[in-house]
Amino acid sequence: MQKIKKTYKFAIKTALYISISLTLLLSVFLYVIEILNAHVLLFGVLCYFICFFIIQYRVERFIYRRVKKIYDDLTLLESTSLTKQPITTDMATLTKEIDKYAKDKKLEIETLKIREEYRKEFIGNVSHELKTPLFTVQGYLLTLIDGAINDKKIRDKYLNRANKGVERLIYIVKDLDMITKFEAGDLRLNFTTFDIVELIKSVFDLLEMKAAKKKITLTFDANYKKPILVNADMERIQQVLTNLIVNSIKYGREKGTTEISIENLIKNKVIIRITDNGEGIAETNLARVFERFYRVDKSGSRKEGGSGLGLSIVKHIIEAHDEKIYIESELDVGSEFSFSLEKAE
């Protein structure tokens, strides 16, 4: 049974008090003039109902004006809802809505603070990433301007190093441009059907020399004799595989292993796993590894090079395919990155 609204309780009690008071007053008056009869009871009943409706109407209008003012002051609340239902007689409804409004605003403020911190960190990272190659290029050019250009050996050496610095700048800018396009939805995917096994083998061939420098073995977990056809953007998936395998080599152990497995996830999905026995990632860093420029080991990663955007690009490409990417890692044990793709019919 629904509880009686507080304004009705107020109106009932107030009307009763007024009716009893007026009836007693009238009774005393009629008794004095000796005309007291049964009509006094009828007067009391009529007086009660008249008082009840007048008081209830006046209280509702009073509360309505106060509630309307609160709604108008808090412009984000829907004041139009006042005309749709009689919430003006239920102060609990208003209290709940204001509490909800306050919680939403608190959450919004906290979100803005987090975004502001992220923005500051991101700008600092971009500044650092661009500053390092810029100063390097500037240093080599200034040395050449100061007279080293006349020495052919030094000139060629410094121009070559300056060129590498410019290539690094271009690499960073291109990666940033790609991420921006993915976020804006401007980068279209070219879906085709291809054999994921053959694509992985071609990436192995491309990175064979890089892996050989650290004596890292690139291998499959099994002998995949039959093609495994998937439906995706072949060029982008090649970029995903390249970035993930390069990452495993970069942080892999000397004479380590980078292993790739392909498994059926569900009827129309496969999952590709890239597993290494490298440095691994601490649990506290796992949630942030896909952020732009976020580095688990800043000094080590800078020594190895790269734009610091590889994993962020990987995540954007996979999500653009409406797929998921996962990471499991244990410090000093190794890491496993995995992502799903749609199987071709």
Rank of each mutant, 00 (worst) to 15 (best):
F191W: 12
F339N: 03
F49S: 12
D146F: 12
L229H: 09
T83L: 08
L309H: 12
M209L: 09
R253L: 09
D276N: 09
K100H: 08
I245Q: 14
E167R: 02
K303V: 15
I12P: 01
K324A: 02
H316Y: 10
F53V: 14
T111S: 02
G252A: 11
E235H: 10
K6M: 13
D322R: 10
E129N: 06
G252N: 13
E198Y: 09
E60W: 05
F52N: 04
V230C: 08
A162H: 05
K213C: 00
I327D: 02
I154Y: 11
T192E: 12
S329V: 00
Y17V: 12
E198A: 15
N264A: 05
K269L: 14
D151V: 04
K131L: 10
I281D: 06
I318F: 12
T219S: 05
D332G: 00
S79T: 05
K3E: 13
D177Q: 07
I249T: 07
S27G: 11
I145V: 13
K68P: 00
G256R: 06
L199H: 05
K153F: 12
A15Y: 01
T193E: 15
G165L: 00
S335Y: 02
K105W: 07
I172G: 03
K315N: 13
L41M: 06
K269R: 07
L331F: 05
N163V: 09
G306C: 11
L141P: 06
L42A: 10
L187Q: 11
K214D: 11
S312W: 09
E291Q: 12
T192K: 14
L286Y: 03
V333W: 06
V137C: 09
I216D: 04
T132N: 10
E167H: 05
R161S: 15
K267E: 13
A184V: 07
K201T: 07
S299H: 13
K269C: 03
V270N: 11
Y251N: 13
F10N: 03
C51Q: 13
G300Q: 11
F194H: 10
R115M: 07
K157D: 15
